[in-house]
Amino acid sequence: MAVLHVSDLRKTFTRGFLRRRTEALRGITLTVERGEIFGFLGPNGAGKTTTIKILMGLIFPSGGKAEVLGLRAGDPAAKARVGYLPENPYFYDYLSVRELLDMVGRLHGLPAATRRRRGDALVERVGLSHAADRPLRSFSKGMLQRAGLAQALIGEPELVVLDEPMSGLDPVGRKEVRDLVLELREQGTTVFFCTHILADASALCDRVGILVRGRLRDVGSQAELLDPRLLGVDVVWQAPADAVDGLRRFEGQHREAAEGHLLSVADLDQADAFVRALLQAGGRLLQLQPHRQSLEALLMSEVERPDDDPGGEGPPGGAADGREARR
């Protein structure tokens, strides 16, 4: 069952005295299924936050349709089943995180005992127990992000929408958010999030959508979207001093790395041949890293592709789903 569905969604902003028009969304079509983690990716200004604001009822579409849990986007009955973390969240800074959760719990119509119980559990879960009664104005950016995650979850939502959830978090905080997202999926919650941090998207997402200049260019799993062909292999190695010169004459690109010598070769056959020679010379293999297309490379190619280009080579197995999406 579709948890989110947008069809030919368009948004044009009119700004200033001269009523200048900016097309933020140019007809995107997208479906997010129950229980999946969906990553909404794209450069700044691509339209990610605009899409999320339409889904959350903050702005209204200029055209097309947006449904959340089978209801019109912005319908209070749908919002009751959704948890939302805005980008760079701003809360009432005179409240403590406990008071914030109590207020949001009231908006969800939760009884006092439930608000208290869930509030305490969430404060613990996001690691803010030590600051639960401090005003939010004294929080760091990372602590505010954690408070934001807690308020998004107090209604025990079926769908969690996170706009840049890793923003402002240190590596420990990012890992905790990643674990939280995976935990939510295990509990059957659908997670829709947008991010610039492609490593997080790559590690977490069942499917991703790539939005560029208001158009959805690709939708699908990483296996479907990314080119499986090998782009090259990096070999990091060490060898006795008298064997190094011989090994450096091997075909490929040689450089010095922090851990030892680095050889970049075109395919696995060349890598195999080098490793055999390395071992015969009494050297040690430190690392062997095959390279394939990454999400970052895919995103960059989509950003560089002009809007009127139907898609160039495209990834293998890409079938059109939306107006311009490959899947």
Partner: peptide
Amino acid sequence: TVYFVIPKP
């Protein structure tokens, strides 16, 4: 702050 209040039910 409206961005976090209005998306509530």
